[in-house]
Amino acid sequence: MIHILKIVTQRFALGLLTLFAISLIITFGVELLPGDLAEAILGQGATPETVKVFRTELGLDKPAHLRYLSWLYGMATGDMGVSLANKREISELIGIRLSNTIFLGGFAAAISIPLALFLGILAALYRNTLYDRVVNTFTLTSISFPEFFVAYILILFFAIKLGWFPGISNVSTNLSLGDKLYRSMLPAATLTLVVVAHMMRMTRAAIINLLASPYIEMVRLKGISPMKIILRHALPNALAPIVNVVAINLAYLVVGVVIVEVVFVYPGLGQLMVDSVSKRDIPVVQACSMIFASVYILLNLSADIISIVTNPRLLHPR
């Protein structure tokens, strides 16, 4: 146990280092993009004169590294700063968006992870049967359609033809939980279709991979039912790759949903970040990327810890 604690502390420290590296990359990446906030906001209406005034007003006339340092200092003292574009507190700006994003991601995860595990275990159990092929074909087809296309198809059936769910997810903060779930049903379903195949196939592959191992042969010879073999003996040992893929997909549900947000007009963090990148609102981009990166690092850490806990060899390295 102490070993795990050590790993966790170590990884947290490394996580901070990663965050620092990301903030550098993002800041100077956006800095390298042609144009800045003043030009982006004025758009076609920009002239050299007005851009110059705007830059001074925004403090963009200061060199990039100074702006970065003052941001870093703010971050260290718990101040995310204000959006350059509209001078709003970033913590306030991001707060609602983040809770929306986590709500949608959590909703989709609550459907997709159990579903994927269930389908994957069944597929491993009934491998090469008709069931296996049908599930495989269906999930593969659903992930080979681009997200927005899956979304449009769901909208066609469930919003336009049947009228069961709204075609856009106009969620605001004062909705009840039931209303929120109802309004985010289609985006959650879209995300489920997008991530379920990956996790389900990895579950199936990891289990099948173990079924040939000597210890499973042994269990099988004892005459234990195939379902029990999988659940008791194969699954625990197959957890490492499965948990890894689940972590990647969970991260995706939080970080990568910008297209679903656009199609369903769902006010989440992804949209905010894309907007801010295209307008070069660097403090907001930095704050978003810090949040995304933290989510990713935490999920990864959990995945690694689960892998370690389930594999005694990793738990007690020589």
Partner: peptide, 11 residues
């Protein structure tokens, strides 16, 4: 998104 817009009107 143009498709989302026309869907919103259609629904």
């Amino acid at each position: 998104d143009p498709t989302a817009r026309s869907n919103a009107l259609a629904t």
